[in-house]
Design a protein around this nucleic acid. Structure first.
Length: 675
RNA sequence: GCCGGUGUAGCUCAGUGGCAGAGCAACGGUUUCGUAAACCGUAGGUCGUCGGUUCAAUCCCGACCACCGGCUCCA
């Protein structure tokens, strides 16, 4: 299968070309399995579920066993964990302190695996009692296997699979013989925490893939190469969209270059128009706020790890006050007794108050809440929809940073809607409709909607302690989802601390899973800020708040769009929409070309002229390389006929057309945001 | 944050314990051309940073930083 690199990927192609996260394999043969549960560990599957493994998964699972067998032949002291199939292949986790795997080991290991293929060993299933199994592993020091054994519920059969000398705790199923596994390749070495928990030891994970035959394997490897070319980091560099400058600006803080800024501003324009149509009003807020803001919102206890450390300083008058308080403290001397303690404590508290602390905002909601509070509100004002492309800063762990997809400074397509409980369902539904509207514009037809709910066991720890409100809002959201016929997966324990949320997830070219849109309910924070509106009955009530960001952040959304379009943006988004190329640099020709450029610029088209002496083939190659959407080639013939030769990026020469017609076409395509 | 890898010109990459290299891009010139590269020349570097070993370090050692592949975490 060859992907036309000039078309957006469809999701079915996506599945072919992108690796998807390892844990998502679970959903493939476990209908309705919560994704989140799988996130923490490779979830145990019942034997029935195992039987659903398809042919390719069996093959890959068997390849994993062969990998482990080969590793044990080469490093007999390796401890085994598990080796499941994944969407793109398989892996096996090892604990092997005596040796660090590196890609240089791959040829040896693959050679050993090929021997096992040649030996054509049968995969034989057998059963052991729990005691027998325990003895088997403990005598071999296989401590991870012993823990895995303990996961198997009492009463369930404990099955083993053996091929040749290799025996593994395994529910199967497998292919018949190792001779069936011929087309495989080791891909990468990585580390993984045992059971995915960062408190557990780190194991060495070997990734590989296997296919039914060599041809399919080669085909897949080729597609992987193609996919790499869509990597937004690479295209962003090549097209001059954005840059990172870790030394002077800081890691994870992108600089938007002029061409990337075009993308940012086109998206903003789209959002402004869409939100205006949906009855939003726009606001603007600063990038930081005092500590009190986040103490009140409750973010500090729940979210401080993700925030940049505070900016601390003393105002001039604070410095004076500090001196006075310190003087008072020393005047107290070294006393004792409850009165002394009380006075000391009071002064110490005052002393702490002489330092002002500001935090860079990690989210826009508190600022918007203060805008709500800035004026008295009546039920007649609701729903109030405050929108802002607000800049936020989050201190992501260094290992998490990933191009534009995961950054420390980001601008969110944010809005907060304050509404009454009666208005909630229609507001929430309108947000979902807005998602779909956007997805249609970008040709995004497959994605995963995740409905994240709270875990009752973690109320007061990870989630605000309001059991009744949690239940009510979650029921409300669920009902809206069902009513609007949206497919979704429900994910317990993934909600925001202040309420349930819906996330829209997509997969990047490299197969990483990213949330690009989010829609969250907040029943807690407005109350913490004391937000109220005067209702019909003249009583004060707290509004519900919906946080929504259908385009997520500029950074991630554009990162995603770059990969989605492979940098071949539709005309309305293209950083350079049109380039006028002259065949030669004769003065009359250049004059005609300049006039055309001026005409298009007059319509605010992003157009450049290439009037130099380079040959036309060279100019075309440059324009194609720069992914210029529309090329207008002009020679003597075109000039004389007041026409242009139209060429579209990736599509080649379209033919000669009247100048006015082409200009009108271009304007029409931009205005309608045509795909 | 953790495990592993990598760091040489704007980009893609060679290379060596003893004067730092290529292609493309840039710049200067020649060329006047019909749908994916005309030709010649010039310039470009504290070899990620700091420290150590050495007569001598881009190369060997160490620390740090950044990036890459994962894990964990998230928009």
């Amino acid at each position: 299968m060859i992907i036309d690199s000039f078309l957006p990927l469809r999701f079915d192609q996506l599945q072919w070309t992108r690796s998807r996260p390892q844990h998502s394999l679970i959903t493939d043969f476990m209908e309705n399995a919560p994704l989140a549960a799988a996130k923490t560990d490779v979830q145990r599957k019942s034997l029935d579920q195992r039987e659903l493994m398809n042919e390719l998964q069996r093959l890959r699972h068997s390849a994993a066993h062969m990998l482990a067998a080969a590793v044990l032949r080469l490093w007999p002291d390796a401890l085994l964990d598990i080796g499941p199939p994944t969407d793109e292949g398989f892996y096996y986790d090892f604990d092997l302190p005596s040796h660090r795997f590196s890609p240089e080991d791959f040829p040896r290991i693959e050679e050993e695996m090929r021997k096992i293929t040649k030996e054509n060993q049968a995969f034989e299933k057998s059963f052991k009692s729990r005691d027998e199994a325990l003895t088997w592993f403990s005598s071999r020091g296989q401590k991870f296997k012993m823990e895995r054994l303990a996961d198997i519920p009492e009463g369930e059969a404990i099955s083993f699979f053996q091929n040749g000398e290799f025996v593994d705790l395994c529910a199967g199923p497998h292919v018949m013989r190792t001779g069936n596994v011929k087309a495989f390749k080791l891909l990468k070495v990585a580390s993984a925490y045992f059971r995915g928990n960062e408190k557990n030891p780190q194991l060495q994970r070997l990734y590989g893939t296997a296919f039914k035959n060599k041809e399919e394997l080669e085909n897949w490897l080729h597609l992987q190469e193609e996919a790499k070319k869509r990597d937004h980091r690479r295209i962003g560099q090549e097209m001059g969209l954005f840059a990172f400058d870790a030394e002077y600006v800081g890691p994870g803080l992108p600089l938007w270059l002029p061409k990337g800024t075009v993308l940012v501003e086109e998206l903003e324009q789209l959002a402004r128009e869409t939100e205006f149509d949906a009855g939003y009003v726009r606001v603007r807020t600063p990038h930081l706020a005092r500590e009190k803001m986040y103490k009140t919102s409750g973010h500090l206890p729940y979210y401080a790890d993700s925030m940049f450390p505070p900016i601390e300083f003393q105002e001039d008058e604070d410095r004076q006050r500090e001196l006075e308080i310190r003087a008072a403290l020393s005047a107290l001397g070294n006393g004792s007794g409850p009165e002394f303690e009380a006075e000391t404590g009071r002064l110490q508290a005052q002393l702490a108050g002489t330092t002002t602390r500001y935090y860079l905002k990690a989210m826009n909601c508190p600022h918007h809440h203060r805008i709500f509070a800035a004026e008295p509100r009546s039920y007649r004002d609701l729903p109030l929809r405050l929108a802002e492309y607000g800049m936020c800063y989050r201190y992501e762990q260094s290992g998490e940073l990933f191009g534009l997809m995961r950054v420390r400074g980001m601008q969110m397509n944010d809005a907060h809607m304050y509404c009454t409980p009666e208005q909630f369902a229609s507001e929430f539904r309108a947000v979902n409709d807005m998602y779909l509207k956007y997805f249609k514009i970008f040709g995004l037809d497959r994605y995963v909607m995740r409905f994240s709910t709270h875990d009752p066991a973690r109320l007061g720890v990870k989630f605000v302690n309001e059991p009744e409100l949690w239940k009510q809002t979650e029921d409300m959201v669920r009902q809206v989802l069902i009513d609007s016929g949206i497919n979704y997966v429900e994910v317990p324990n993934e909600a925001a601390f202040y309420g349930p949320k819906i996330d829209v997830q997509v997969y990047s070219t490299i197969g990483r899973e990213f949330t690009i849109a989010t829609n969250q309910v907040d029943f807690a924070v407005p109350r913490r800020f004391g937000l109220v509106y005067k209702d019909r009955d003249n009583t004060e009530k707290t509004p519900l708040c919906i946080h929504r960001a259908p385009l997520g952040t500029h950074e991630r959304f554009i990162g995603f769009l770059i990969e989605h379009y492979a940098g071949n943006f539709p005309l309305w988004l293209a950083p350079e929409q049109v380039r006028v190329l002259t065949i030669g640099d004769e003065v009359p020709l250049v004059d005609y070309a300049r006039a055309l450029v001026q005409e298009l610029r007059g319509h605010r088209v992003r157009v450049e002229g290439d009037y130099g002496t380079t040959k036309i083939n060279g100019k075309i190659q440059n324009a194609e390389k720069d992914k210029v959407h529309t090329m207008l080639v002009i020679g003597g013939r075109e000039k004389d006929a007041d026409s242009v030769a139209l060429r579209l990026h990736g599509k080649g020469n379209v033919g000669v057309k009247p100048r006015a017609e082409v200009v009108a076409q271009i304007l029409q395509s931009i205005r309608t945001r045509a795909a």
